[in-house]
């Protein structure tokens, strides 16, 4: 990736915490920094509770505040700091320069409006067009996302469509205003594999044609390998590893990444028992002092439970947050 260009999205040292009812604080996202460049697909991978969806909501300006609180950091879209922006200006950016595709297309479409009305509303909010022109744009978008009988679908309600169709409508809506950044939060998790393959193809095609950047949030490593250019692995609110997709899969540096890759049952492996990671993700209100993965890590050393590891830079744009490399040098194998 050419790094000399300015990134579309730049997140710097972002920390988010939630104030809980019992007076405790849950640090759901801590000190994460990343950039997304034009025409690039960046995947944010992690298990549930790792903070990946909260990060995307913060970028969209949709974080529930309170109880959520952004304690530090900045989010810049083409240089503009979104966190300093007024609510009114933010809503002209949301859905226009950044749009989002959600996991469950049934709950993110309004059940009482026809597809046409929902789409025209989104288009007219950001473009100065008449209803009729809006209808034409919406129809063109539906055809672009591969809906064969677009005219009919325009007049239908979301419940009349299948899951794959609804997700296509969502993508058409999200792309209608030519966003610079598309955030896709588990867009295919609720879909069957054959439909998932169609939707993933479609998203990459839309990215190429519209020149947008995609921030792809998922937990499926197979999907990551097929779509992403760069991958960030999140664990308990921190980015523990970041690397170009091929490097991450062939030379994972963080023990969590390595373990995650091994636990996936693949089609061409013939092992009897899968390697598994013992234990569960620590709760965001009771985080350990040292490395957050230490309790489940098979390479854990004494320092891991005492001190937080710092981010370390490697060649090929790989970054890792792990003590192994500061303590034992760079030639450690985590296989």
């Amino acid at each position: 990736m050419e790094k000399d260009k300015n990134p579309v999205l730049e997140v710097n040292h972002l920390s988010i915490c939630f104030d809980l009812a019992n007076g405790q604080q849950a640090k759901v996202v801590e000190d994460i920094s990343f950039s997304v460049y034009k025409e690039e697909t960046v995947a944010l991978v992690g298990e549930s509770g790792s903070g990946k969806s909260i990060t995307s909501l913060a970028v969209m300006g949709l974080l529930p505040i309170p109880p959520g609180r952004i304690t530090s950091g900045s989010i810049r879209l083409n240089g503009q700091d979104l966190l300093q922006m007024k609510q009114k200006n933010m809503s002209s950016i949301r859905g226009n320069e950044i749009s989002m595709i959600f996991q469950e297309p049934m709950t993110s479409l309004d059940p009482v409006f026809k597809v046409s009305n929902q789409m025209i509303e989104g288009i007219r909010r950001h473009q100065a067009v008449t209803k009729r022109e809006g209808f034409a744009i919406a129809l063109r978008m539906l055809k672009e996302v591969g809906i064969a009988n677009a005219e009919k679908v325009m007049h239908e309600y979301p419940h009349q469509l299948s899951g794959g169709m609804r997700q296509r409508v969502m993508i058409a809506m999200a792309m209608a205003n030519n966003p610079k950044l598309l955030i896709a939060d588990e867009p295919t998790t609720a879909l069957d594999v054959t439909v998932q393959a169609q939707i993933l193809r479609l998203m990459l095609k839309m990215k190429r044609e519209h020149g947008s950047a995609i921030l792809f949030i998922t937990h499926d490593m197979g999907v990551v390998a097929e779509t992403a250019d760069r991958v960030m692995v999140m664990y308990a609110g921190q980015i523990v590893e970041e690397a170009p997709v091929k490097t991450l899969f062939t030379q994972p540096k963080h023990p969590y990444t390595a373990a995650l890759l091994q636990t996936i049952p693949s089609l061409d492996s013939n092992v009897n028992r899968l390697p598994s990671i013992p234990g569960t993700v620590p709760s965001a209100s009771q985080l350990p002092n040292g490395c957050r993965f230490a309790a489940r890590c098979k390479h854990a050393m004494s320092i891991c439970s005492e001190k937080q590891p710092e981010i370390m830079q490697f060649e090929h744009d790989q970054q890792v947050r792990c003590h192994l490399y500061t303590e034992k040098g760079e030639m450690v194998s985590v296989e």
Partner: peptide, 25 residues
């Protein structure tokens, strides 16, 4: 065959380009 081909796999040696199944169930 289509079902197996539709599963995303971690494989950088051969980039598959199989046409996915059209339509829904």
């Amino acid at each position: 065959k289509a079902l197996l081909a539709a599963i995303p796999v971690v494989d950088f040696q051969e980039k598959r380009d199989v046409e996915p199944l059209h339509g829904d169930l």
